[in-house]
């Protein structure tokens, strides 16, 4: 990691960015997801995410009035109007020039205000450092023109990365062509992660977001058996 280029800390003062600027993001085509967890595993490995926390997590959701499962990969939505930016007193969550929201570890004191404010449950406290952390769309990879680890590892091209702010970018075209929408659109946070074939009932089923909740009994059980909590 030491040979990688430095992160450009060019956070804008304004939480609301003009949409004609660069806006990196993803389109997640739920029609293609097979729930294989390759993205979660790749993310965990690439970013050394601690046990019990997730930057990227595939939720298994039971469709209402049916026994069929749907799969919903979730990660930080890199909102254009991100509540975490307003809540943090030390400006640790920062927006980079390309629109992604990252957490500047040097400024974080573990206040948890960002965790409380995030409607997607995307932020966690790293047990080792005691500081907040979350998906940064693999800044260290994309600065080398590589795709984020989750996108590169997806066997079905469910996850696609690109610039939503450029209408000529393949991602923006794909989003428009397939009518991609944001998760919890009502929140008004203007996410940069868009979903194809996303349905409203999924928001109810996946309201617990990305991090583990008390409903995730199996995962908690597995952790407890390994001596961690």
């Amino acid at each position: 990691m030491t040979n990688l280029p430095p992160i450009p800390w060019e956070g804008t003062k304004n939480k609301q960015r003009s949409l004609n600027k660069k806006r990196v993001g993803m389109v997640i085509d739920l029609r293609r997801c097979i729930g294989c967890h390759a993205c979660s595993v790749a993310c965990k490995t690439e970013n050394e995410v601690p046990l019990g926390s997730f930057r990227n997590r595939v939720r298994y959701l039971e469709q209402p009035e049916s026994e069929t499962l749907s799969f919903l990969p979730m990660l930080c939505m890199h909102c254009q109007d991100a509540p975490c930016l307003s809540a943090c007193p030390t400006q640790a969550p920062t927006r980079l020039a390309d629109g992604r929201v990252v957490i500047n570890q040097d400024k974080c004191c573990g206040m948890k205000a960002c965790i409380s404010a995030c409607p997607y449950g995307a932020i966690y406290i790293d047990a080792k450092s005691g500081r907040a952390d979350k998906c940064d769309l693999c800044t260290h990879r994309t600065s080398l023109d590589l795709e984020p680890a989750c996108v590169a590892s997806c066997p079905t091209d469910t996850l696609r990365y690109g610039d939503l702010g450029d209408p000529n970018d393949p991602l923006a075209k794909y989003a428009k062509e397939h009518n991609a929408k944001s998760f919890k659109e009502d929140a008004g946070t203007q996410p940069s992660i868009l979903y194809v074939k996303h349905e409203k009932w999924m928001e109810q089923s996946a309201a617990t977001g990305i991090q583990l909740s008390s409903e995730d009994d199996e995962i908690i059980y597995e952790q407890n058996n390994r001596g961690t909590s």
Partner: peptide, 17 residues
């Protein structure tokens, strides 16, 4: 979670917070 970094609250100021 990082009590030793409490001083950051005085060094950094986010007017929206």
């Amino acid at each position: 979670k990082s009590s030793d970094r409490f001083y950051l609250n005085f060094l950094e100021f986010n007017p929206a917070s």
